[in-house]
Design a protein around this nucleic acid. Structure first.
Lengths: 114, 114
DNA sequence: ATATTGAGATACCAAATGGTATCACTTATG
DNA sequence: CATAAGTGATACCATTTGGTATCTCAATAT
């Protein structure tokens, strides 16, 4: 399984970057505008934007001398689906428990879990 | 917003750890058993297990001199929900595009996209 | 009692990460 | 043209990260 979603999870691994995504969910912003919302230099924010861009989570479009960064939420879908695979355990676990209990009450084959 | 889900996303940020989660989805395993599935030392695997445990993604139970690591898929739920917030854009964007197109067809202010 | 085995702890290392400061480049504006 | 503003690029730094090697401790087996 080629880890094409590694860049996505990598990007999501930093709280600042997650905040940036939320921020860009409101509206597209230039680097400077994004940086205004954080207590760090523009250069640092730019680095985060590069990581986000590597993960395909944002799109960057030039507008005059500015760069407008906009959210590409669709890139989150693979990550959502990866995690979603595990939801089989959330309900399934209760289900398995129920099944196990039922099996125990009707199981007189002599099977013993030694 | 206190980043209680930072440990979760942190844990998901490494491909080995994601593989471990999948692995433990099959069945609980000791450290050595997990390590058998990877090309690295037991100590390295143990470190990953600690990170996973910090994120609440696995539970560790002693069994004799062994430690059995089992998946706690429920801890993934907050991460799934965080990402899920963005699905409003998946359909909404198409919707916005549709709206924008409709607006353009009735908008004769002279705006022109190159 | 003595190996043997599974795991924890520590020290150590190279590389990646998150940040700063600084300079060069490009685009607007006087 | 000169200057200012927005960005890109680079060098640099401290810390974290992912890994190894090694030692000790606890539990099992002989």
């Amino acid at each position: 399984m080629p880890d094409h979603l590694q860049p996505v999870f990598r990007a999501l691994g930093d709280p600042t970057r997650r905040d940036i995504l939320r921020l860009l969910g409101q509206e597209p912003m230039t680097i400077a505008e994004v940086a205004d919302n954080f207590d760090m230099t523009r250069a640092a924010v730019k680095k985060h934007l590069v990581v986000l861009s590597d993960g395909g989570l944002i799109e960057v479009a030039p507008r005059g001398r500015e760069k407008v960064n906009s959210l590409n939420a669709l890139a989150l879908k693979p990550a959502l689906e990866w995690i979603g695979w595990f939801d089989q355990f959330w309900d399934a676990r209760l289900d398995a428990l129920k099944t196990a209990i039922e099996k125990e009450t009707t199981d007189d084959t002599g099977h013993n879990n030694g």
